[in-house]
Amino acid sequence: MAETKQVIVSVKRQAGPKEGARWEEFSLRWRPSMNVIICLRDIAENPVTRGGQKTTPISYDSNCLEEICGSCAMLINGRARMACSALVDQLEQPIRIAPMSKFPLVRDLAVDRQFMFESLKRVKAWIPIDGTYNLGEGPRVSPEIQEKGYPLSNCISCGNCLEVCPQVNEHNQFVGAAIISQVRLFNMHPTGAMNKSERLAALMGPGGIQECANAQNCVHACPKGIPLTESIAEVNRDAWKQALLGWLAG
């Protein structure tokens, strides 16, 4: 046990969206409860490849380091997951780390998830409470709705559910499971429900809920265990009722 245990990490490097990509391998000193972010930090401390070549620190996003900010999603050994909760001891080595493939690349492992925020805006994923005068108290939220809504409110906009979805790709503009689940959350809230039909209409636009093909990958990939397939089914039911019966029954 004299020699120190090493962790072999292979990282996909790309200086920018238009530059060529290459893989760099690093050998790091193993420590207990190491996660992928720690690996990336170690590399930043001493950016030298396994072959002894000097290189640059790796660009990536992270913040909370406790799977709550959603910024550190990447492909680890080919699967979309959060780097801060990906423990080295549970990963096959060499650990291959690549950026998410469904979002525009910024540099190395950093991607631009603006698409998700634009989609959230498009479906009005909020509850409007501002007015030019005091709107007073809103209706009470029943304990049942609180209980149903809480898990949905755990979404950290990491984008894993979009990354694993076969329907999210360059051929269409599918908004993805997270956004649909947020529509469910805000539509079930008694004040939020006042904009329900607008949200549903936005979800029946281009790239809307119709693009879901029920592969159900999203629910497996969500780090927060959000019942995404249930959300999609419920929003789907509300949507077709509005589309089909809206013009009949008003």
Binding site: S197, E198, A201, G205, G208, I209, Q210, G246
Partner: peptide
């Protein structure tokens, strides 16, 4: 992307059909 429309997109209707 006008968010005020309440009519579903053709792609929605075709998909449902």
């Amino acid at each position: 992307m006008s968010s005020t429309t309440t009519q579903p997109d053709t792609s929605y209707l075709l998909r449902k059909l």
